[in-house]
């Protein structure tokens, strides 16, 4: 019994606690990201935003959550029940499992696997399933049109994201996310070396998470709200949480690949005193602000413009940069950590 405890029960308990240590703050962050979004957009439009529930409206996310929780789950007639209920769960779970490989500090990572970048790429390429299954199972034309748009959009922008990531990979010489951050300690942040790719990556993750100005899958003016139009109550809440958790995940990937992960900007005293995870969180918040800023500023793209941007601008540029990076890495011996 004691042997079973030390060999199985105790490690599993520790693992579950570590996962909860990531997931619970993440869900809180998702709740307050919706609050931050409303407040920031309100400030940009000279409004006050939520002010009623709690001081400065701080309890608004909890009230919204409670409202969604107590509503009735409506399953439309003719919907494919199993797939209909599976779709929001898939979206939500995929938004959570990506966090397994994000390094929060030196050694502070749930799974320090050698193919971390590929794992994240795989998880983000699966995100399309939740949406396309929801659109198909709803038995509704609006939802189906939204799902079709979304799958074409996400598949197109994934290619650009993949090529941009490869440029970073061959600079760092590893697929391990912790190793990529350590390489930036030696080389300097990749946002300086790969600045054009950093900008393209920001555009591509907006499209990949279906956010403004590329939110055509839920274009409320032409598709009501697209793929999630038939969803209510908790099933809708799961889509909503999944979308925002995905935004935070994509911001974390950007921070790790380009902004030096847990590293302070300069290796001098007052900056090094701040712990690494806090730096990562600050960088994530910075990228999230760009997400919200874009939503408040830019009008929605037309569908053909969206496809043109993905295939004729992002793809050739990132491919050319990849060849350039590979040439530089071969021509000049760069230090490896």
């Amino acid at each position: 019994m004691a042997e079973l405890f030390t060999s199985t029960i105790w490690p599993v308990t520790v693992l579950v606690l570590r996962i909860l240590l990531v997931v619970v703050p993440l869900l809180l962050a998702v709740a307050y990201l919706t609050y931050a979004e409303r407040k920031i957009i309100a400030a940009m439009q000279l409004r006050q935003g939520p002010m009623v529930v709690g001081p400065y409206g701080l309890l608004q996310p909890l009230a919204d959550g409670l409202k969604l929780f107590v509503k009735e789950t409506v399953i439309p007639t003719g919907a494919n029940k199993v797939v209909f209920l599976l779709a929001p769960m898939i979206t939500f779970i995929l938004a959570l499992i990506g966090w397994a490989v994000i390094p929060f500090g030196e050694g502070l990572v749930l799974a320090d696997i050698n193919v971390g970048v590929l794992y994240l790429f795989a998880v983000s390429s699966l995100g399309v399933y939740g949406i396309i299954m929801a659109g198909w199972a709803s038995n509704s034309r609006y939802a189906f049109l939204g799902a079709l748009r979304s799958s074409a959009q996400m598949v197109s922008y994934e290619i650009a994201i993949g090529l941009i990531i490869i440029s970073v990979l061959i600079s760092a010489g590893s697929l391990n996310l912790s190793a990529i951050v350590r390489a930036q300690e030696v080389h300097g942040w990749y946002v300086f070396w790969h600045f054009p790719m950093f900008m393209l990556f920001l555009v591509a993750i907006l499209a990949e998470t279906n956010r403004h100005p590329f939110d055509l899958p839920e274009d409320e003016a032409s598709l009501v709200t697209g793929y999630n139009v038939e969803y209510s109550s908790m099933t809708f809440a799961l889509f909503f949480l999944g979308e925002y958790a995905n935004m935070i995940l994509m911001s974390a990937i950007t921070s790790v690949l380009f902004l030096g992960g847990w590293l302070p900007p300069l290796d001098i005293w007052p900056l090094t005193a701040i712990p690494g995870p806090l730096w990562l969180i600050l960088k994530i918040c910075l990228v999230l602000f760009v997400f919200i800023w874009a939503r408040a500023t830019l009008p929605r793209y037309r569908y053909d413009q969206l496809m043109r941007l993905g295939w004729k601008v992002l793809l050739p540029l990132s491919l050319a940069w990849l060849v350039l990076t590979a040439g530089v890495v071969v021509a000049f011996p760069i230090p490896r950590p």
Binding site: V115, L118, Y119, F121, A122, S125, I132, L148, S151
Partner: peptide, 25 residues
């Protein structure tokens, strides 16, 4: 074979099967 596993998910599940699903739907 973790590299093969990830490539299987990225290529077959993330791209090929999406197109399958697209056509069948």
């Amino acid at each position: 074979a973790e590299f093969l596993a990830m490539i299987l998910v990225v290529v077959y599940v993330g791209a090929v099967a999406v197109l399958f699903l697209f056509v069948v739907m």
